[in-house]
Design a protein around this nucleic acid. Structure first.
Length: 689
RNA sequence: GCCGGGUUAGCUCAGUGGUAGAGCAACCGCCUUGUAAGCGGUAGGUCAAGGGUUCAACCCCCUUACCCGGCUCCA
């Protein structure tokens, strides 16, 4: 009997009978592997387990618990969903159903413009379970486009995909559906149900089942806003029920961190509907957090060599005409106000006004780099459906900086700017960062190629020097210059885009900005835009979600609450609170009108870092019972010791902003631009536990 | 902006074509508490707003505002 030889990922080789498949191979290795297998990689290409292996092939088995394996499970589950929908809704057209992060979706068009309801999801899910129980095979077939067009005669979206692929106009989305070959591949589950697909798929539907349909939503066909709106069903699918449950649990945890929910619960801020969409008011508790954030930011900026400026919320249309915003950004600007001496707009950006400040008098190279800083409140008309709590909002305050520098300074300035940005972000508890470098869109840009190359190199060099992992986004830059965006990873692994550093060749031109160089000639400065928090609102939202509302002590709205055990201890409680207040801490007292346990519970629900219980023992000994958030109760702590510890803890938290990344080779060198990177000296840091 | 779902007390939510209810919070008492919910009482709502259908609308219909989930957008 003829044999074939295949190589495994560990370098070993196996002989199998001719015609053997990856399933045979997996079985020959072990029954557990055979059971977990969902597809295979043969000579670098993902294929079905049931495909015969060519002799000499390099083969790896894909199991369901790998990223590739889950992708196969999800994609296969999407097919099952499409079959269930076509059974339950005769005449339904189906378009695209890919695997995505954590799950899959499929887009449908129902006859008569019908839409799915939540209860439809239950019925579809039930039918899917029947299909899975029936253990239908996934049978692959390949055919010429003409045959495929006939096969999908009543599926216009499928036909469109086939036509695009066969005419060579396929995009990635299409290719994932059918592959890029001349022939079209399809997978058939039943005589009635067949779907276009590149594969691979699990051998049969019985291999699926750890899934849940999550939600229904509208989605444009091919993402085209002008095209038809389809009905999309999202689902999640995993290799086991344990993995599914874990995922659902993660979603619950994320929901508990939702900043909109916590903002209400913790009385931080709100979005009164009377204000209008996308506009927030900060309550006292949120206000104090913001104030602490702002104070810290201002201190760091002073140390970082920035100069503070203030600009109005409105400007004459001419300003935005000159800056180009009216041409490029009008759709996102609030509508104009007609005044007796012209037309005024609420500002969507601070940059034009900062340009005016630069231009207010003649500038010398000796003043550069000129770093202007403003907590500037701007208004942007975000479309109604795009608003999302603090994350996408219409009125917000940017911690906005514009730096004017010479060509020669650009490199150093960007490097020190990146240091500065990272240092401040670290103070807010973020430790993992990634960046994106967006480069020139060759079809849409202003400025010279040399300038772009120089600026892009400077950004690249700064990232390399800092050792910040980053991706290059080719052609993703705005027309006016390349940029770096910095993403942070939060406590549960989600990433948020916060800071941005952008080069701008356009505005200095439009405002005809100049400085007098050492050569006594006029030169055009380069302008850098930089937002660090992005906006205070959004940053607050990210902080709330990152800390799940439990702000570190230095940021917490109330840092300590004093609870007298009984009325007799209220005077002492007030003394303790007064002392803490004098020492500069945010403290309040909850008098003994309720049971102690109840007051402790209330304080815990408010996520206050320290609950201080004082009773008879404490009055006589000048001590406290310290109940820290997330820690154990300690009785009999001397007030002075508590104060010292609190001060040390806060200093330590702030000092995170001084830490440089450890593995960096150049960690010992001085900051590039010769400025103090903004270290806040923690006087009591040595007192840290 | 588009598709779908919502909006009832400060918060979380019940509820019915015949003009509203709970828990928590608030307030007032009693209790005087040593580490996560003591007891009793009071007050609190134009049921998002406007229009329509109806003898009668919080409930059905329409419009608007706002929110939620997506899509698109985020020079």
């Amino acid at each position: 009997m003829a044999e074939i030889t295949i190589s495994l990922p560990d370098g070993s080789q196996r002989s199998l009978a001719k015609g053997a498949t990856a399933t045979t191979l997996a079985e020959s290795i072990g029954s557990r592997l055979a059971k977990a297998a969902v597809a295979a990689v043969v000579d670098g290409a993902e294929v079905d387990l049931g495909r015969p292996l060519p002799s000499g092939a390099q083969v790896a088995i894909i199991t369901g618990d790998s990223d590739e394996g889950r992708h196969v499970l999800r994609h296969s589950t999407a097919h099952v969903m499409a079959q269930a929908v076509t059974q339950l809704f005769p005449g339904a057209k189906f378009s695209i159903g890919p695997a995505i992060v954590d799950g899959f979706y499929y887009d449908f068009e129902l006859p008569g413009g019908r839409t799915f309801t939540e209860s439809d999801l239950e019925a579809i899910e039930a039918r899917m379970r029947e299909i899975i129980k029936a253990d239908q095979p996934f049978v692959r077939a390949e055919m010429p486009a003409a045959d495929a067009l006939r096969l999908f005669a009543d599926q216009p979206y499928k036909r469109e995909i086939i036509e695009r692929v066969s005419s060579g106009a396929a995009d990635n989305e299409d290719v994932s559906e059918v592959g890029s070959d001349e022939s079209i591949s399809v997978y058939r589950n039943t005589p009635e149900f067949v779907d276009l697909c590149r594969g691979p798929h699990v051998p049969s539907t019985g291999r699926l089942g750890h899934f849940k349909l999550m939600k229904v939503a509208g989605a444009y066909w091919r993402g085209n806003e002008k095209g038809p709106m389809l009905q999309r069903i999202y689902g999640t699918a995993w290799e086991s029920n344990a993995a599914l449950d874990e995922h659902l649990h993660r979603l619950e945890e994320a929901e508990k961190r939702d900043h909109r929910k916590l903002a209400t619960e913790l009385d931080l801020l709100s979005f009164p509907s009377q204000l209008g969409g996308g506009l927030a008011v900060w309550h006292p508790k949120g206000g104090i957090v913001r104030k602490v954030m702002e104070d810290y930011s201002r201190d760091r900026h002073i140390n970082g060599g920035y100069q503070f400026v203030f600009t109005p919320h409105l400007a004459n249309a001419n300003l935005f005409r000159q800056s180009g915003h009216l041409d490029f950004y009008r759709d996102n600007m609030y509508p104009p106000m007609e005044m007796d001496n012209g037309t005024y707009y609420p500002k969507p950006m601070n940059c034009p006004m900062h340009c005016l400040i630069f231009d207010a008098r003649q500038r010398s190279y000796r003043e550069l780099p000129l770093r202007l800083f403003e907590l500037g409140t701007v208004y942007r008309y975000e479309r109604a459906g795009t608003l999302h709590g603090l994350m996408r909002i219409r009125g917000f305050t940017q911690d906005d900086s514009h730096i004017f520098c010479t060509d020669e300074q650009l490199q150093e300035e960007i490097a020190s700017l990146l240091d500065f940005v990272m240092s401040v972000l670290r103070a807010f508890g973020f430790t993992e960062f990634t960046a994106n470098l967006s480069t020139k869109d060759p079809l849409k840009y202003v400025g010279s190629d040399e300038a772009w190359a120089r600026a892009t190199d400077a950004l690249q060099l700064a990232l390399d020097k800092y050792g910040l992992p980053h991706k290059i986004k080719e052609g993703d830059a705005a027309f006016y210059g390349p940029k770096i965006d910095i993403d942070v990873k939060d406590a549960i692994g989600r990433t948020w885009q916060l800071s941005t550093i952008q080069c701008d060749f356009a505005l200095p031109e439009r405002f005809n900005l100049e400085y007098i160089g050492a050569d006594n000639a006029r030169h055009r400065p380069i302008m850098l835009h930089r937002a660090l928090f992005g906006s205070l609102e959004r940053f607050m939202g990210v902080l709330i979600e990152n800390y799940a509302g439990a702000f570190p002590t230095w940021l917490a709205p109330v840092q300590a609450r004093v609870l007298p055990v009984a009325e007799a201890h209220e005077n002492y409680a007030a003394e303790v609170a007064a002392r803490l207040h004098t020492e500069g801490f945010r403290v309040d007292v909850d008098e003994a009108n309720d049971q102690l346990g109840k007051r402790i519970r209330a304080a815990k629900m408010e996520k206050i870092p320290y609950v201080l219980v004082v009773g008879d023992d404490d009055v006589s000994a000048a001590t406290l019972g310290v109940n820290p958030r997330g820690g154990d109760v300690e009785r009999g702590v001397a007030l002075d010791d508590f104060i010292a510890g609190l001060r040390a803890e806060i200093a330590e938290q702030l000092a995170q902003g001084n830490d440089r990344p450890v593995p960096r080779e150049a960690a010992t060198e001085a900051p590039a631009a010769g400025f103090d990177p903004g270290v806040i000296a923690p006087a009591t840091r040595n007192l840290a536990k």
